[in-house]
């Protein structure tokens, strides 16, 4: 469905995406990466807004840029908020459907049914300026799906939403994607996980990993990490830590601080904590290594560049 072959996109001297090669078949996918990683550029290439500087982009087997056949089959919901404030959701969605080649009457009908589907039936005639961000996001989503595309592309669709609105939107997208293809860009792993989508991880414009959520999690688990411990009896506690099968190496970085290398930092931290309680040792600090997405991204990049796990 989506195929990028050695694609690089340059904005002058700035790299948007760098030598990306990926093939995504039909189904749901999450494009994961921190802000500025190149996700929006990736989506811009897929949705025909941008041309690659180098390489080849194909969507449904064809070049998407300036290609009405491909664009007709894509629905795109950008990350930016909808600042078209005076129009109502009904007018906005009808307008977009008309631009996709539908008659005014059919556009209005589709706008009404899609707004109903995304839960904006009652607010359909209120100006967008009076709607909450969550409602505007849903109006954007309605605009992206009302012309019945085969591929829905969403850029940070849950950004800035409160938990309730986020949950509702996740359910909507998940329901919609049961029978269509979906590509969602996000910087939050759990959002993509909740969509039960495959993953492609992008960082610094490079695709650093791809696979199912489980494969990515397994990969993450193989990455080295550490647990930092500050204690009043560091040598005794380090001795106990060495006894844990999860510990790979121990080193001291001060009189009261030591670091244990491990691949399962949370589990090891729990074991060290339990050991400290058992021995009555005071622990001032017990910090499992950086498993934040940024930390994981950083290590995936190292792995991508040839570092040994």
């Amino acid at each position: 469905m989506i195929s990028l072959t050695h694609v690089t996109k340059l904005y002058g001297s700035v790299i948007g995406v760098n030598d990306v090669t990926v093939d995504l078949g039909a189904g749901a996918y999450g494009l994961l990466g921190p802000n500025g990683a190149g996700k929006t550029t990736f989506l811009g290439l897929v949705t025909g807004q941008l041309r690659p500087s180098i390489g080849r982009v194909r969507v449904f087997g064809e070049r998407p840029f300036f290609n009405a056949r491909v664009l007709r089959r894509i629905g795109y919901c950008p990350a930016s908020d909808l600042t078209e404030r005076s129009a109502t959701p009904r007018e906005w969605v009808r307008y977009l459907v008309q631009l996709s080649g539908f008659t005014p009457a059919a556009s209005l009908k589709r706008a009404d049914s899609t707004l109903e589907q995304v839960g904006l039936g009652e607010a359909a005639r209120r100006p967008l300026s009076t709607l909450s961000k969550g409602m505007r996001q849903r109006a954007k989503l309605a605009g992206a799906i009302a012309h019945d595309p085969d591929l829905l592309v969403l850029d940070e669709p849950f950004d800035g939403l409160d938990p309730v609105a986020r949950h509702e939107l996740v359910s909507l997208v998940r329901t919609w994607a049961r029978s269509r293809s979906l590509l969602v860009a996000s910087h939050l792993l759990h959002e993509v996980e909740s969509l039960q989508a495959g993953l492609a991880v992008i960082l610094g414009g490079r695709l650093v990993a791809s696979g199912t959520v489980h494969e990515i999690r397994d990969l993450i688990d193989t990455l080295p990490s550490e647990v930092r411990v500050v204690s009043t009896a560091p040598r005794r506690l380090a001795e106990l830590a060495c006894g844990c099968p999860e510990a790979e190496a121990v080193r001291f970085v001060g009189n009261d601080t030591f670091i244990v290398d491990t691949r399962v930092p949370r589990l090891l931290a729990e074991r060290i904590g339990e050991a400290a309680i058992g021995e009555g040792i005071l622990v001032r600090e017990l910090v499992p290594g950086d498993r934040s997405l940024e930390g994981i991204f950083g290590r995936l990049v190292q792995l991508h560049r040839g570092a040994t796990p």
């Binding site: 080649g101 954007k140 605009g143």
Partner: peptide, 11 residues
């Protein structure tokens, strides 16, 4: 922020 909504439509 409406450019992108229009630019991804055929024509």
């Amino acid at each position: 922020g409406t450019w992108v909504h229009v630019a991804v439509r055929p024509g």
